[in-house]
Design a binder for these strands. Sequence first.
DNA 1: ACAATAAATGCACTTCCATTGCATTGGTTA
DNA 2: TAACCAATGCAATGGAAGTGCATTTATTGT
Lengths: 138, 138
Amino acid sequence: MKTIEEFLESKNIRVTAMRLLIYKFLAEKQVAVTLSDIENAFEKADRTTLYRTIKTFEEKEIVHQIDDGTGITKYALCEKGCNCEIETDLHLHFHCNNCNETICLTEHKIPQIKVPDGFVSENVNLVVKGICDKCSGQ
Amino acid sequence: MKTIEEFLESKNIRVTAMRLLIYKFLAEKQVAVTLSDIENAFEKADRTTLYRTIKTFEEKEIVHQIDDGTGITKYALCEKGCNCEIETDLHLHFHCNNCNETICLTEHKIPQIKVPDGFVSENVNLVVKGICDKCSGQ
DNA sequence: ACAATAAATGCACTTCCATTGCATTGGTTA
DNA sequence: TAACCAATGCAATGGAAGTGCATTTATTGT
Ligand SMILES: [Mn+2]
Ligand SMILES: [Mn+2]
Ligand SMILES: [Zn+2]
Ligand SMILES: [Zn+2]
């Protein structure tokens, strides 16, 4: 069981107080977060630092970006063995129309999508919208 | 074969010169267009008018909005019998990473997506990215 | 330990797109 | 013709993403 510090170092991310805090914040959250969410959680810190931190995490592939159609970019930690490097994020994302939260359904892989002749599929974004388990009340 | 005028009226959209022009512009295009595309095509007209025209078309369900992940909203005419009212846009969208164009693959319906127990799927957005037929050169 | 160096942080500013308020124009109806 | 309402145009706003540069903090070599 690696410490967070060791984990970040193994990914060539220098450990700083801010980075540890943001990493922990992401790890606690069960849902994808926006930059504003992080901003609200760390009011002392500058927006740019938070922005660049999340971008660093993204580059180093410990976080992936989610476009859930709300127009606001969200982020979530990658799962172990996520291998963003090789192919993008194969799991689907669910956006709740009620509580407005977006979560990774890491168990649910995106099915193979057929495209017409002549088209080459490199990458797929699949977002399901509806009511989440918490909001559907069961 | 209805005229465009009759068609717009049947959808409770008042016919104006601008609306006819924009409708024809959309009808000619084989690809989804941005507001800027329309703006460039009609430099005499005000951006707001173009914006509100497309929003009117969207409300009246003769145009659907496409979020292809570029961060810029695109629009395309609905197919006949599209029935946006009942359920959204079941076809998938393809975004070309080379020419940067997005097209409706109206023939390609989105497959049924399974979601975990407790989740209710209301609506699915599926965007495939890759190389389009024109760019793949076949 | 110290100086040199590089990276991280903070502040200010910019850009881009979407959206709105309000005045004006234009078309329809009584 | 007068009254009305919708469409248009202009100006401004807002939100989010991104960048330049100065400052602080950490790392490295001597
Ligand atoms: Mn995810
Ligand atoms: Mn479409
Ligand atoms: Zn919910
Ligand atoms: Zn192309």
